[in-house]
Design a protein around this nucleic acid. Sequence first.
RNA 1: GGAAGCGUAUCGAAGCGGUCAUAACGGCCCUGACUCGAAAUCAGGUAGCCCGCAAGGGCUCGUGGGUUCGAAUCCCACCGCUUCCGCCA
Length: 448
Amino acid sequence: MAYNVFQYFSVAVAETEYIMIDIKFLRENPEVVKQNIRNKFQDSKLPLVDEVIELDKKSREFKQEADSLRAEKNKIAKSIGALMAQGKKDEAEAEKKKVAEFSERLAELEKLEPEYAEKIKTIMMTIPNIIDPSVPIGKDDSENVEIERFGEPVVPDFEIPYHTDIMERFDGIDLDSARRVAGNGFYYLMGDIARLHSSVIAYARDFMIGRGFRYCVPPFMIRADVVTGVMSFAEMDAMMYKIEGEDLYLIGTSEHSMIGKFIDQMIPEKTLPQTLTSYSPCFRKEKGAHGIEERGVYRIHQFEKQEMIVVCKPEESPMWFDKLWQNTVDLFRSLDIPVRTLECCSGDLADLKVKSLDVEAWSPRQKKYFEVGSCSNLGDAQARRLRMRVQGENGEKYLPHTLNNTVVAPPRMLIAFLENNLQADGSVLIPKALQPYMGGQTKLVPTK
RNA sequence: GGAAGCGUAUCGAAGCGGUCAUAACGGCCCUGACUCGAAAUCAGGUAGCCCGCAAGGGCUCGUGGGUUCGAAUCCCACCGCUUCCGCCA
């Protein structure tokens, strides 16, 4: 079945470029682009490469013809101006007639130009970003590759209840009220559990500030052109809530407003790298494959997150990628939660991304790891879409690379926290690092 | 929500039908001179994109349309920003 490039067009299309790679690169390296598509198991897109090359060729031919006609027209218009100034009206009239001769062909070409540009753009939007050579090749998430484990995944000799059951022992969650008020996928956190939630965010904030990141509270709503600048149509459709009657969307993560911060900006090279950590609530439709079927606070429409983003020189992005995920691992380890890193294989990697890995926390209840964070290198794709450029020290301008990573996202993170810190007597130990944020408490004791 | 003003290069800003878009003027930045070095001063340079081997050409004055031989400049619509008033945590 041919890939339907129009399937995501239900959302409004603004003027932004939605493409992920430079068409010049595609023109010069069609085989690289095709191999990349094969690596991502999107073979149905393969014919699009030759198709877009053909369209691009024709488009440039039309453009060339139109350009020379326009050049001719400009020349004549200029000479008319001169003749008028000298009062030679008859000669000016004769020149006017000349313009009419080719204005028809020019009008034809001027209609074709945007038509071809649109066709090219439509295809280019679906050509995925070139993945990093280090990305393991695989069809889907079942072929993601475990990179490294940190900490001992312990299975205690007593039973670990489902996370909402743990929370209920502390009278810490009210899903019934949440359903009445907002529906499935929302929650009330109560008492010490709510406090724990805020403590984790506050601790994570200070943790990142301690690592030299600049703290930022961004807008929680953004415009459509920022949305399309930071994510693909598929993601947008599955994730973003739109405000009715306004050109505003609720952010799905503060990455959106943090990378969007640089839209249309010329960034002085000496201000790089920009290393920022931001707090925000996040809103997601979760319309995709999983939906909201999981019970509890694992997959929800609203959560809070401490995020980190980096804007840097292209050659530095692999280095920052490693630093970023290391931060998350270190944070979880500082709270005694075992984690592992799982590299996203080619087929599971979003089209915009160059490389991505998940940080997963240990669940002693499920006896497996589950995702608590995601670290991505977007290469220059977001920069291209958002028209953010760097002004180099020696005058040249180039696209920076952008990266983002979760520091911590409760309440999901609380699942890992509660499960790993639960004691046989039903109490939950508060790790030293978190105690100052919990009013000095060393453990939480169940109320029922 | 009401009123007014504004959207021009990396920034500020002039231009208000052809002689002002290789965009005045100024700032930033770069190079050179002077200096032991720096500051100050002086001189010069500094838009992006597209097509083209090149020469060269085209496009871009918020966006889209209109008038015109010709639009940054006139007209219409839309978008955005600012200020004042109103409302408000």
